[in-house]
C-alpha cells in the first residue's frame, strides 16, 4: 500500500471511530476528568441536603413549626448552593469539552485537511491502459487531478485555444501516464462513499426497527335487512 493511502486510512479510521462512539464520549470524559474540588463539594452538599431532608421528614411541622421552618430555610439555601455548583460544574465541563473539540480540530481535522490538500494529487495506483481508455479524458482527468480539474479544465481549454493567459491554469493536456492514475484525493473520496454506503445498508437492514403493519380502521358490518314476512303485529 502506498504510504499516503495508509496515512489517509489511518485518519479515516480515527474519524469513523469517533463518529461511531459519539454516545459514549460524555461518559469517557466524565471518567477522564479528574475529581476536582467542585465535584467533591457538590457531592458533599447533596449528602448534607439528603440528610437534612430526612431529618425534616421526621419532625412534625405542626408541633415543631419553628425547627421545621428553620430546616426548610437551610434546605432552600442548600438547594441554591447546589444549583450554583451544578452550573459551575456544567460550565467547567463545557470548557473541558470545548478544549477537547479544539484538540480534535488541531490533531485530526486540520492535519487531515492539510494532508489532502498537499498530497491530494499523489497517484495512489495506476489504472491499466485498457481501463483508462474506456472513459473520457475529462473523467480520467478528474481521477488523476482531483475535483479541481472540473473547474480548471474549461479555463485551460479556453486559454489554450484563444491564447489568453496561457500557462496560468496549468497545461491543458496531460500525458497518458498521468491520466492513468488515481489521485489520493479521489481515492479518499471514493473510500468515504463506499463506507457511507455500507453504513446505510447495515443501518437499514439490521439496525432500523421493523415497522408494524398499517392500522386498519374497524368497519361495522352492515346489518342486512331481510324482510321475509309481510305480516305486521299491532300493539
Amino acid at each position: 500500500m502506498h504510504w499516503a493511502a495508509a496515512v489517509a486510512v489511518f485518519f479515516v479510521v480515527i474519524t469513523k471511530f469517533l463518529q461511531y462512539t459519539a454516545k459514549y464520549h460524555d461518559k469517557w470524559i466524565a471518567n477522564l476528568a479528574p475529581a476536582n474540588e467542585l465535584s467533591k463539594k457538590y457531592f458533599n452538599k447533596m449528602k448534607e441536603r439528603h440528610e437534612l431532608k430526612e431529618l425534616n421528614n421526621t419532625i412534625s411541622a405542626q408541633d415543631n413549626y419553628a425547627k421545621w421552618t428553620k430546616n426548610n430555610r437551610k434546605l432552600d439555601s442548600l438547594d441554591k448552593e447546589i444549583n450554583d455548583l451544578k452550573n459551575e460544574i456544567k460550565s467547567q465541563n463545557k470548557a473541558f469539552q470545548g478544549n477537547l473539540q479544539k484538540l480534535r480540530l488541531l490533531a485530526l481535522t486540520v492535519p487531515f485537511f492539510v494532508f489532502k490538500i498537499v498530497y491530494g494529487k499523489t497517484p495512489i495506483y495506476k489504472l491499466s491502459s485498457s481501463t483508462s481508455t474506456l472513459f473520457p479524458t475529462f473523467v480520467t482527468g478528474v481521477w488523476s487531478q482531483g475535483w479541481f480539474y472540473v473547474v480548471l479544465h474549461p479555463l485551460r481549454t479556453i486559454s489554450q485555444r484563444w491564447h489568453i493567459m496561457e500557462g496560468k491554469f496549468g497545461t491543458a493536456k496531460f500525458d497518458a501516464v498521468t491520466l492513468q492514475s488515481v489521485s489520493l484525493g479521489i481515492w479518499v473520496w471514493a473510500l468515504m462513499n463506499v463506507i457511507n454506503g455500507i453504513e446505510f445498508i447495515v443501518n437499514q437492514l439490521f439496525l432500523t426497527p421493523k415497522m408494524g403493519p398499517p392500522a386498519v380502521a374497524e368497519t361495522q358490518e352492515e346489518k342486512k335487512l331481510d324482510v321475509s314476512d309481510n305480516a305486521f303485529i299491532l300493539d
Binding site: 408541633d63 415543631n64 413549626y65 419553628a66 421552618t69 428553620k70
Partner: peptide, 10 residues
C-alpha cells in the same frame, strides 16, 4: 399559643 411560641422563636 403553641404557634405563637414558634413565631417568637422563628
Amino acid at each position: 399559643k403553641k404557634y405563637l411560641d414558634q413565631i417568637d422563636e422563628l
